[in-house]
Write a protein that binds this DNA or RNA. Sequence first.
DNA 1: ATACTTCTGATAAATATTTTCCAGAAATTT
DNA 2: AAATTTCTGGAAAATATTTATCAGAAGTAT
Lengths: 284, 284
Amino acid sequence: MISDKIQQELENLTRAERQLAHSILDNYPASGLGPLSALAKSAKVSVPTVARMVQKLGFKGYPEFQAELREELKAKVKNPIAKHDTWAEGAPSEHMLNQFTDAVIDNIRLTLGQIEPRLFDEACALVAASNTHLYVVGGRITHTLAEYLFLHLQTIRPKITHIQSTSNAWPHYLLDVQKGDVFVIFDMRRYENNTLKLAEIAHAKGAKIVLFTDQWRSPIDALADITFSNRIEVPSAWDSAATTLLLIETMISAIQNLSWNETKDRMEELEELFDRTKLFRKFN
Amino acid sequence: MISDKIQQELENLTRAERQLAHSILDNYPASGLGPLSALAKSAKVSVPTVARMVQKLGFKGYPEFQAELREELKAKVKNPIAKHDTWAEGAPSEHMLNQFTDAVIDNIRLTLGQIEPRLFDEACALVAASNTHLYVVGGRITHTLAEYLFLHLQTIRPKITHIQSTSNAWPHYLLDVQKGDVFVIFDMRRYENNTLKLAEIAHAKGAKIVLFTDQWRSPIDALADITFSNRIEVPSAWDSAATTLLLIETMISAIQNLSWNETKDRMEELEELFDRTKLFRKFN
DNA sequence: ATACTTCTGATAAATATTTTCCAGAAATTT
DNA sequence: AAATTTCTGGAAAATATTTATCAGAAGTAT
């Protein structure tokens, strides 16, 4: 790392160079990524001093020095957390289990890093609001995620509908949409026309839209009040929904907390119901 | 933030510009801090395209664009939260987003740590074997996971059926089960009686069972040939399916690789059918 | 299918940056 | 304190980068 190298060389540097070195380390690496002249000015040394020091550090020239700084930055953004070298112990790191898990953790990190907590909280409030009707919409693959969310929310709040945009019955559901109703829409790449149409109608009717999409963003983004863009790339011919599921589950949990008082009874009642029908075994 | 601005403007950008935008976001902000020509090259667009886009984004020129990127970087590094003990930067570590993600990562680590890669590979082989019929079984909540697996495998292999154990039609599906057929069964806590019954019949008919369950293990474990026990505990009134989804997706990817030659054509055909995005240029 | 518009990239011109050179300043040695 | 060495920064030269121009390609509408 360049900052280490600078620290190490600090002894062998001249006064002006040391002054420069401190300036570089001061807000590393941003200061080194601008033009040489700007760095010289902010360190209050001359332009040639910078040029010379960079060569002293072993670089052919300032551009090469910058290139390495950028590489460092790239690497830092890619894996800031000590990379767990293998997840499945006893499998080589090239094993799909490890490769795939690495990718998913990366996706989670990058996705969460870009979420604004305030917006997340807002989305939770919208989804929790039990005075409006809630529609959960998924497409060909994503309807599984939509249903997962639906099944949980069903326990927490009333007035909730799961619409599969691939079904040709969906226009019927939209008849009763009121202004202020909330749509949670899932649309990942190979964005579906049906889903877009549905979103447009919902939007026209004055409904609010919370969108879960990928990093390239479904066109519905333009209509959405809140969008969550999830990283979905994994070493596979398909995309990963793991990050999205994480967000869904977090949202469910957050909503649960918001409205625990109201839902407590519902939950217990349901528990009771499932027991009677003997769908579930008693759990100790 | 520039990345936000880019995503926001994405609509108004032309095809080449969009391609560039994605390249910038791909490893943000490092890629934008190098020379314009390097960025153009890595995004595979021409130099003027880059120049035009930064102006479209409201900057006087590329240097000004870079200057703002550097300012962002400086601010981010200065911010004490850049210490990566939080996932959603800008949210306190007590925020549900961070708490929940911590728990899920923990679950992934613990689950993967207990998996025997050999068994995982075996399970993949069982699920991939296209000479036998494959049944995917889920319960009240887990049928969403089952369907997720089903939808993907459908593309890869023939002879596959998704059974919902809560449906009262499932006994019909079991009529044709042959010895050697494979069942992938999902059964998480509040283990379902129906699912157990189904597993018993399948087992009696000589079918092989791959079971996805939680760390306390469904009673089906006794009948299963291979069991994956997933950690599912999160700070929530419900359990997390994230780890299980990760395993499912990994399995899909592994199976895909096993049978790539056979499925390549199927995939490409589908790709063509679903691709309406026109976002990306065709690969050469 | 044709005309029209918009977009794209090769090239050239303009601008900015980096490097080199050198004279004078600062530090060190004698 | 003088001589010597090392360091520093101004300015010019060399190089690289950015911006503007324009013709042809791609896409759209008629």
